[in-house]
Write a protein that binds this DNA or RNA. Structure first.
Length: 489
RNA sequence: GCCCCCAUCGUCUAGGGGACCAGGACGUGGCCCUUUCAAGGCCAAGACGGGAGUUCGAAUCUCCCUGGGGGCACCA
C-alpha cells in the first residue's frame, strides 16, 4: 500500500492539512505501507517560499516521517511537481493525440466576458467548449493569431453518469453534464491540479487516496482522466472536513478563527508549536476528530493508534474543531510526563521568553507547577518569578490581604521573616509548622498570612504552593523578597 | 442557482434492528479536599432534527422534508 500527502506550498501549514497527513501516515503505518510526501507547487502565482519549511518542520514536529519525498528522495522522484513538468506536458499531449483533449485558444478576456454573460442570464457558469470542435483550418488560424498561446482542455463526456466508489461513503454518482472541459495544462506550460495529481498518483504507484471531503466533486473528473489514460484509479476515501469551533464554515477557509469566548484559536501548525502545545497531545487530539479509538478511550499513544487505525472507524460526518479539548488533553500529557522530561521541554520556552535558564532549578520547579499548567507557555505566568534575576515586589495593595492594613501586614511579614530566619531547616514542612503557629499567635487566618507572603515572594495572587515555593527559592532569596516587600509597605 | 456530502447531549464521539428509559470524553453546575490556583474524588443537568414507511420491534434500514457543510478557476 502506498499513500501520499500532497500539499501545495502556498501558505502556512494548516491544522486541517496536518489531520489529512496524519490519517494518511497512520493508514500507511498500520498497513505496513509507504507514506509519500509530494509537493504540488504548480501554482506560480500563489507560491510562498516560506511554506515549505513550515510544512516540513510541522510534519517533523508531529512525528510524521515520510518514506519518500523532499530531503529523503525515493525511487519515484522527483517529488516536487515543478521538477516534473515534462511528464505532464508529455501526458497532456498524449491525450490530445488520442483525442481525449484539445487545445483551447480562448483568451482570458473571452472567458471572463462569457462568465459575465452567463451570470447575467442566470445560467451556470462554465466554458462553452468553443475550441472543442474546431476545424483544422480554424485551429491553424487561431494558433497563428495567438502566437501559439493555448491551454489543453479535457474532453469531458457530454452525457451519461459517472460513479465513484468512496471507501467511506459508498458509491457516489455524478451527472456528466455537470462536468466541465477543464484545463489540464495552463498556457505557461504548468499543469493544473487535476492533471498533475492524476499523473503523479499513477506514476508514483499510489494505491489509496485519503483526502479531504472538499475534493469529492473532483473525483468524477479524475475518474475520467484515469479512464482516458487507461490507468487504474487508486482506491479513494474522502475524510470529513473540520469546521470552525462555531460549526460555521470550514476551518481552513480563514487562518483566523475564534472560539465562542472570542479567543483566537490556533489553526496553523506553527501556532500550536509556539502556543506551547505538545506534539503528542496534538496528534492524539487530531486523531480523535473523525476517528475514534473505541473502548471509550480518548487518550492513547501513537503506537496504540497505529495498531488500531483503519478506515472502518472513520466517521464521514464533518464536525467542529473542539479546541477546548486540546487544552485539557495537553494538560493530561503534561501531568503524565516525567518531571525531568518536562523540565527539559520547558527550558527553551523560558529561554525564548528571555529568562535566564537553569536546568537544575527547573527540575525543582516542575513538580510544583506540573498540575497547574495546560500548555508549556502557561509555565511562564505560573513560575516566571522563580527565574526573575532582580525580583521586585508588587505594590502594597497587592500584598495587603483582606481584613488587614499596611501596618498589620508589615508586622506579620516581619514576624514571619524572623521565624523563617530562625528555622533549623528550610523545608516546606518546617516552614508550614512555624508559620501556622505564627498565624495563630497573631490571630490571623492562615489565608491572610500566607496570602501576604505569597504576594511578597512570588509577586502573584495565584502561585504554586507557598512553602514548596519558598523552599525552591531558598532561604536567602525568600527572605530578601519578604524584606523588600516590608520596605515597600 | 446547479451538483454532491452529512445529520446522536453545547462540542468531539460510541452505537451496524431487540443487550439503549442511548455509553464515554471535553465543557458547564454542585459538593468534598484545600494557604491561592490547579489537579483529584463524588454527584448533576444535557442528544437520537421532523414526518412517513419496512418490521413483532428502529438511534440503527428506505423515502420525503428540514438543517448544516462542501464544490462549481489557466487555485489547489
Amino acid at each position: 500500500m502506498r499513500v501520499r500527502f500532497a500539499p501545495s506550498p502556498t501558505g502556512p501549514f494548516h491544522i486541517g492539512g496536518a489531520r489529512t497527513a496524519l490519517f494518511n501516515w497512520l493508514f500507511a503505518r498500520h498497513h505496513g505501507g509507504k507514506f509519500i510526501l509530494r509537493i504540488e507547487d504548480t501554482d506560480r502565482k500563489r507560491y510562498d517560499p516560506d511554506s515549505l519549511r513550515l510544512l516540513l518542520d510541522g510534519l517533523r514536529w508531529l512525528g510524521l516521517d515520510w518514506d519518500e519525498g523532499p530531503e529523503v528522495g525515493g525511487p519515484y522522484g522527483p517529488y516536487f511537481q515543478s521538477e516534473r513538468l515534462h511528464l505532464y506536458q508529455y501526458w497532456a499531449n498524449w491525450l490530445v493525440e488520442q483525442g481525449h483533449a484539445y487545445r483551447c485558444y480562448c483568451s482570458e478576456e473571452r472567458l471572463e466576458a462569457l462568465r459575465q454573460q452567463q451570470l447575467a442570464a442566470k445560467q451556470d457558469p462554465g466554458y462553452d467548449r468553443h475550441c472543442r470542435n474546431l476545424t483544422p483550418e480554424e485551429r491553424a488560424r487561431l494558433h497563428q493569431e495567438t502566437g501559439g498561446q493555448f491551454v489543453i482542455r479535457f474532453k469531458m463526456p457530454l452525457d451519461g453518469e459517472t460513479t465513484v466508489h468512496d471507501l467511506l461513503r459508498g458509491d457516489i454518482t455524478f451527472d456528466n453534464r455537470q462536468l466541465q472541459d477543464l484545463v489540464l495544462l495552463k498556457s505557461d506550460g504548468y499543469p493544473t491540479y487535476h492533471l498533475a495529481n492524476v499523473v503523479d498518483d499513477h506514476l508514483m504507484a499510489i494505491s489509496h487516496i485519503l483526502r479531504a471531503e472538499e475534493w469529492i466533486s473532483t473525483a468524477p473528473i479524475h475518474k475520467h482522466l484515469y479512464d482516458a489514460f487507461g490507468w487504474e484509479m487508486p482506491q479513494i476515501a474522502h475524510l470529513p472536513v473540520i469546521l470552525n469551533p462555531s460549526g460555521k464554515g470550514k476551518l481552513s477557509k480563514r487562518s483566523v478563527a475564534f472560539s465562542e469566548g472570542g479567543r483566537k484559536i490556533p489553526v496553523l501548525v506553527h501556532e500550536f508549536i509556539e502556543g506551547g502545545y505538545l506534539p503528542e497531545a496534538v496528534v492524539n487530539f487530531l486523531t480523535n476528530i473523525g476517528w475514534s479509538f473505541g473502548d471509550d478511550r480518548e487518550v492513547f499513544t501513537v503506537q496504540e493508534t497505529i495498531e488500531r487505525f483503519d478506515l472502518s472507524r472513520v466517521n464521514p460526518a464533518g464536525g467542529a474543531f473542539p479546541i477546548e479539548k486540546l487544552d485539557w488533553l495537553n494538560g493530561v500529557y503534561i501531568r503524565e510526563m516525567a518531571d525531568d522530561e518536562l523540565a527539559r521541554r520547558l527550558l527553551p520556552v523560558f529561554e525564548k521568553a528571555g529568562y535566564p535558564v537553569d536546568l537544575e532549578r527547573m527540575r525543582r520547579v516542575v513538580p510544583l507547577i506540573k498540575v497547574r499548567i495546560k500548555t508549556l507557555n502557561d509555565a511562564l505566568d505560573m513560575a516566571g518569578f522563580f527565574f526573575t534575576p532582580s525580583f521586585t515586589p508588587p505594590p502594597a495593595e497587592e500584598i495587603v490581604q483582606k481584613g488587614m492594613d499596611a501596618a498589620s501586614t508589615k508586622a506579620a511579614l516581619q514576624a514571619a521573616a524572623d521565624r523563617l530566619a530562625g528555622l533549623p531547616d528550610f523545608s516546606a514542612k518546617a516552614q508550614e509548622e512555624a508559620l501556622r503557629a505564627l498565624a495563630a499567635e497573631l490571630g490571623l487566618k492562615t489565608g491572610q498570612l500566607f496570602g501576604a507572603l505569597r504576594a511578597a515572594t512570588t509577586g502573584q495572587q495565584v502561585s504554586p504552593p507557598l512553602f514548596e515555593t519558598m523552599e525552591v527559592l531558598g532561604r536567602e532569596e525568600a527572605l530578601k523578597r519578604i524584606r523588600r516587600a516590608i520596605a515597600q509597605l
